[in-house]
Amino acid sequence: MPVPMLACSQLGRVLPPPASRFLLADVSLELARGEVIAVVGPSGSGKSTLLRLLNRLDEPTNGTVLLNGTDVRTLPPRELRRRVGIVMQRAYLFPGTVAENVIFGPRQHGRMIPSTEIDDLLTHVGLSGFATRDVLTLSGGEAQRVAIMRALVNNPEVLLLDEPTSALDDAARLGVQSLLESLIRERHLTCVWVTHSIEQARVMADKVLALESGRVSAYGSAAEVLRA
C-alpha cells in the first residue's frame, strides 16, 4: 500500500486553563497524493483549527500528523511550512512589490529566482506585468492570486486553503476558484480546502470532512457525504 501524502490520527486540541475547553477532538483522515478534501461545517466547528494543527501553527494536545509517512513534529518548522503551504481567507502580503512577495519563501532557503521566472509565474496566474506593482495597489482578487503563487513557488507537497475565495466578490471568487482548480490538477497537489460552500466542495473535492462543534460528523467521498 502506498504511504498517504497526508494523514492524521485522533488529532485534537484543548485550550489550557483557564479556558479549559476543547477546540477539536479525534480527527482522523488520509489523503493520497493529488487528492483534495473539503472541510465543511458551521462557524466555530473547528475547521481553521484543523488547518493550524496540520502545519503546526498550533500544537495538538493529542494525536499525530504524518507528512508522507514522517511525523511533522520531527521536521524543523521552516521545512514543514515550505512543504505544507497555506493560503488564508485574506491575502496577508508583505509591504513592497509583487515580486518581493513571490520570492520571499525561496529567499529564506537561499534560492534565488531570476526575474524572467518570476514573470512566467505571474503570467501563469493571470498577473502578467505585475512584478513591480506595489501590493497596496492590488484588488482583492489580484492580491489572493499573489498569495497563491507565493505559496506555490515553494513547491509544497500539501496546500492548505482556508476559505481562499470567501472574502472576494463574485467575479473574483470564480476566477480564483478556477485558477486553483487548474493549478491543483496541473501540479497534482494534495489539498485541504476549508469552505462554507457546499457547491464549492462538490466541484473541487474528492473527499469531504464535516465538522460540528469540534467533532467529525461525516467523512468520506464527496458524493457520499454531500448526498447525505
Results as ranks from 00 to 15, higher is better:
L11Q: 15
L53A: 14
L67W: 04
M5S: 05
A143P: 01
S166T: 09
R82P: 01
V87T: 04
A218V: 00
S139E: 05
H188C: 05
F104W: 13
L152S: 11
A38C: 13
D120L: 07
A147H: 13
N101F: 00
R215Y: 01
L138G: 08
H124V: 00
R173D: 00
R133F: 11
G85T: 06
L159E: 08
P95E: 09
M1L: 09
P114Q: 15
M112D: 10
L160S: 10
H124M: 15
H188S: 10
G63Y: 12
I148S: 06
T123N: 10
R227S: 12
D162G: 14
G85W: 11
A38T: 04
G110M: 10
A167G: 05
Q200R: 00
A19D: 15
L50W: 05
S178H: 13
L93F: 08
R56M: 11
E224H: 13
S115T: 05
S213G: 00
D120R: 13
A38W: 02
P16K: 11
T195G: 03
L50T: 14
R33W: 00
L211R: 04
G44L: 06
Q108R: 08
T123K: 12
K47H: 14
F94T: 10
T64M: 03
A151D: 07
E100C: 03
I184C: 09
T137S: 15
R33P: 04
L160M: 12
K207P: 11
Y219D: 03
L31E: 12
D169W: 06
T116F: 05
G105S: 10
V27K: 02
G85Y: 07
L122V: 15
A151V: 02
V14I: 11
S20G: 14
R82F: 01
A222S: 08
L179Y: 06
P42S: 05
L50E: 12
G85D: 07
I103S: 04
Q177Y: 01
S28D: 12
L127T: 14
R21Q: 15
S48E: 03
S217Q: 05
P18H: 15
E117M: 03
V216N: 02
S115C: 01
N55M: 06
D170I: 00
T70Y: 02
A143Y: 11
V158D: 12
A167Q: 09
